[in-house]
């Protein structure tokens, strides 16, 4: 027993030394270690995702053929309507291009899309995250916006070789600027996630709302992205603003609750918007500061 206690003392001393070395070690060591343990888990997570897809496949396969034919017919109609819309949009696009050339307007950053299946979801008080099955190999970069339709889902925070972690808009680590529907002056507000409480549905906080802003009667105002800052394209829907606005602590602004546009935890697939040109921040991080200068 006594020998055990002495062994414990030596082990604790050794552990303390290792901890100090760990803290003092360059961040690349810690990053490599984290990445190694993530990649160790990656095949299993992919397998889980594939298994889920397979279950969905068999579920669909077991459906009645008549249902599938009806669904295909409906889709064909929707496709025909969309093709018509697309043809009409072409005229608008041409006109838009001509006007931009006349005005010498610098076009905003363009994106290409990467569709990704959702792997695992996980929420706690401090993070609301989904794991998606697309990563560095597919061109995904940290900071890329993640959407579903015209709704913002979140932002890519960590990218691995074949997977990425996405912070949802309700996550406490999420923050972006937005406009409120019904505010004619187009004043900017800030949206950030808030620490979760399981007893209430997940929500984000909208703050910096101008004191004289009031919700138009009979409407549920949408909160949309500003397009400023270069991360999110403009006019994507973040969610809706709840009616009960309250005064902020400083007394000059109001704050409210944002309900996400979709049930973020039932998403099966999302779209990642990857900027075609790296942002300023990415340029700085990749050491192209001199070029920027």
């Amino acid at each position: 027993m006594e020998r055990n206690r002495q062994g414990a003392k030596a082990a604790y001393v050794l552990l303390t030394i290792v901890m100090v070395l760990w803290v003092l070690s360059p961040s690349v060591v810690r990053r490599f270690n984290r990445e190694a343990f993530t990649e160790f888990q990656a095949p299993a997570l992919h397998l889980v995702g594939k298994g889920r897809d397979l279950a969905r496949y068999w579920e669909l396969k077991s459906r009645n053929t008549e249902d599938l034919v009806a669904a295909s017919r409906d889709l064909a109609r929707v496709n025909a309507a969309l093709e018509l819309k697309l043809a009409m949009m072409q005229d608008l696009r041409d006109e838009n291009k001509r006007l931009r050339e006349i005005a010498r307007y610098t076009p905003p950053n363009t994106f290409y899309t990467v569709v990704a299946r959702v792997g695992l979801r996980e929420t706690s008080s401090w993070w609301h995250r989904i794991n998606v099955r697309k990563g560095l190999d597919d061109g995904v970069r940290p900071g890329c916006p993640v959407i579903f339709g015209d709704r913002v889902v979140g932002r890519v925070t960590v990218v691995h070789k074949n997977s990425a972690e996405v912070d949802l808009i309700t996550s406490p680590a999420f923050r972006c600027t937005a406009f409120l529907e019904g505010d004619d002056q187009g004043r900017m507000v800030v949206v950030d996630g808030r620490a979760a409480n399981s007893l209430t549905p997940p929500a984000a906080r909208v703050w910096n709302i101008p004191y004289d802003y009031s919700i138009p009667a009979g409407t549920v105002p949408k909160v949309v992205t500003t397009g400023l800052g270069g991360i999110y394209p403009a006019h994507l829907v973040l969610g809706t603003l709840e009616a009960n606005l309250r005064n902020a602590q400083d007394g000059n602004f109001k704050e409210g609750v944002l309900r996400p546009g979709r049930d973020l935890f039932s998403l099966q697939e999302v779209t990642i918007l990857v900027p075609t040109k790296p942002s300023r921040a990415e340029d700085l991080l990749s050491g192209r500061y001199d070029e920027l200068q």
Binding site: N4, R5, G7, A8, A11, Y12, L15, V18, M19, W22, V23, R30, N33, R34, F37, T38, F40, Q41, E122, W126, W127, R129, N131, T157, E165, A173
Partner: peptide
């Protein structure tokens, strides 16, 4: 490390806590 790899937890916190717990239980 497996637990903290995919989560926003400071590097090494869980791993070192688990190691300390392992020393505690292995010696008792």
């Amino acid at each position: 490390f497996l637990f903290e790899a995919r989560r926003p937890i400071p590097d090494g916190v869980m791993a070192f806590w688990m190691m300390a717990a392992a020393i505690f239980f292995s010696t008792r």
